[in-house]
Amino acid sequence: MYRFAIALTLFSSSAIAQVATLSGTDGQNSLGTVPCAAIAGEPLSNCPAELRRKEDGTATLAVQLNTGEVRRIYFTDGIPDSSSSTAKISYETPGDLMVIFIEPGEVYEIPRAALTRQ
């Protein structure tokens, strides 16, 4: 069983460091929380998440938003290329963190190491 315990520093106006973790369940799938916001301007909060990896280099991150909706983000070789939303998806990689944006205001933060093939 692999375990990921990665501290993330969130960039907020108060500059408070928060921690998010992904605990491996079987080496392929991870359960935990990721910082997310479903609405533009909303502060990030820890959202329940599951990361499912496949041997072909693809992965799916399912995040339960505080609106009750589940957003799925699809990755190929560690790059987010689509989601369960029809809106535009983009991302930035400041340091060891990947910040994913889905228009008009969804934000997700995930450690880049969590997307690396084992």
Rank of each mutant, 00 (worst) to 15 (best):
residue 5 A to D: 14
residue 14 S to L: 13
residue 6 I to D: 11
residue 54 K to N: 11
residue 16 I to Q: 12
residue 99 V to Q: 09
residue 51 L to H: 04
residue 60 T to D: 14
residue 87 A to P: 00
residue 19 V to G: 11
residue 86 T to L: 00
residue 18 Q to K: 14
residue 78 G to K: 02
residue 64 Q to H: 07
residue 8 L to T: 15
residue 98 M to H: 02
residue 12 S to Q: 14
residue 18 Q to C: 12
residue 58 T to A: 06
residue 35 P to L: 05
residue 106 E to G: 08
residue 62 A to G: 09
residue 68 G to N: 08
residue 94 P to D: 06
residue 90 S to R: 11
residue 97 L to D: 07
residue 106 E to W: 05
residue 40 A to L: 09
residue 99 V to M: 09
residue 88 K to V: 09
residue 7 A to Y: 14
residue 41 G to Y: 02
residue 14 S to T: 15
residue 36 C to I: 03
residue 25 T to G: 07
residue 86 T to R: 06
residue 10 L to Q: 10
residue 68 G to L: 05
residue 74 Y to E: 06
residue 76 T to N: 12
residue 67 T to L: 05
residue 11 F to T: 14
residue 91 Y to P: 04
residue 102 I to M: 02
residue 20 A to Y: 03
residue 7 A to M: 15
residue 1 M to G: 11
residue 79 I to D: 08
residue 88 K to D: 10
residue 74 Y to G: 02
residue 71 R to A: 03
residue 12 S to W: 13
residue 22 L to A: 03
residue 91 Y to D: 05
residue 25 T to E: 12
residue 8 L to H: 10
residue 81 D to S: 15
residue 14 S to N: 14
residue 53 R to V: 01
residue 85 S to C: 08
residue 111 P to H: 09
residue 54 K to A: 12
residue 118 Q to W: 15
residue 64 Q to N: 07
residue 45 S to M: 14
residue 113 A to P: 07
residue 17 A to Q: 13
residue 56 D to K: 07
residue 55 E to Q: 11
residue 45 S to I: 13
residue 37 A to I: 02
residue 17 A to M: 11
residue 44 L to Q: 05
